[in-house]
Write a protein that binds this DNA or RNA. Structure first.
Lengths: 194, 194
DNA sequence: CCGGAACGATAACATATGTTATCAAGTTCA
DNA sequence: TGAACTTGATAACATATGTTATCGTTCCGG
């Protein structure tokens, strides 16, 4: 969310690098909770290896909100910015290597960055991207059937389907595991007209 | 989206005020298109009176994405930031009074603001809010039935239900007009146990 | 003030999706 | 390695939702 902009705004590189030393490297197995629902997010998480998901508990039913993979960074934004209890948890789905940067350093980094010429462009890009991402997720529910949403996922982010267990994907798509299975078998039949 | 932060960050007030003179006041009837799908957004829109919706056309079917009312500001963020064709249109739902601030002045204003002490807090608040809004919309589709989504709308943003025609709300909730009508009559029956 | 258009309710039917249960195959771990 | 757990497929049935059509009411422009 922050650090993949290295290549896009080269003049800002020295700033990222200055904070490398404040990161904690963590090597963890699958199903490790990195942030627990209800706790306040204190760190920015960067994934070097593996993958994680954000999810929340709804009446005992586990709902996945988002997946993250190598070279992506994340945090529970509301919790991080407003010091409020996080509405979602974050856990690893595979054995992973992550780096944690405490909030105070993120704040410090942003303070340093904001006087740089490229800063405004960068910050607008970063936030616009995230916002557009969530907006698209939302629009997809208004516009597409679950079948189409699955196809889009398959086309646009195939690594998710490949690496993540199906029940997580089902809840992410907003359907039951049974129905996702039906969708898959229907699509498989469709393809077999060779 | 920008200008309602006046009261929250008083030290920044003089900056907003400096740009008032560059706004164009527009008095328009209902169903006036303020931004057309496919065109590049060139202005930030602030609503003084009335209400508008953002929507897009999906295979001839009109889908509403969001509603805006008095003292709210909006733009097609992706289009505005990246100079790309807007994916959605914006139109008034009632006779309205809006102010338009051309993009160049928004950019200029942000450039002036970013050196102010409160800037980082403000910009994080603004973007975090928007992002959390869209994330919540999205999560609601994963978590809630259409009936619950309608009830939440009724509880959390009753002005929308009061002022906006039902078929716009139906597409916003992701259901057909017929089903929204069913939901309403079901809820009405539930209430009549007096 | 009239007439057409927009709006909302409802019925009848078709389709999509959820729920529960069962089974087979793969995985994990003591 | 074997037992428990996880994962995914499928069937049968129940419920939710979409589609089309009809009707009465309201709204709005000429």
């Amino acid at each position: 969310m922050l650090f993949h902009f290295k290549t896009q705004f080269p003049t800002l590189n020295p700033f990222w690098d200055k904070y490398l030393e404040f990161q904690t490297r963590l090597e963890v197995p699958a199903k490790t909770i990195l942030l627990e629902e209800g706790k306040v997010s204190q760190q920015y998480i960067f994934i070097e290896k593996g993958c994680v998901r954000a999810f929340f508990n709804n009446n005992g039913i586990d709902k996945t909100v988002q997946f993250f993979f190598e070279n992506e960074g994340l945090t529970s934004l509301d919790s991080f910015v407003n010091n409020t209890p996080s509405l979602s948890s974050i856990e690893t789905l595979e054995p992973s290597v992550v780096y944690l940067l405490p909030k105070q350093y993120v704040t410090q980094l942003l303070e340093e960055l904001r006087h740089e010429p490229d800063f405004m462009q960068m910050i607008l890009q970063i936030f616009a991207r995230r916002q557009i991402h969530y907006m698209n997720e939302f629009v997809s529910f208004i516009r597409d059937t679950p079948e189409v949403r699955y196809q889009r996922l398959l086309n646009e982010r195939p690594h998710i389907v490949q690496r993540v267990a199906q029940h997580y994907i089902a809840s992410y798509l907003g359907v039951s595991t049974v129905h996702l299975s039906r969708i898959k078998s229907k699509l498989a039949k469709g393809k077999s007209h060779f």
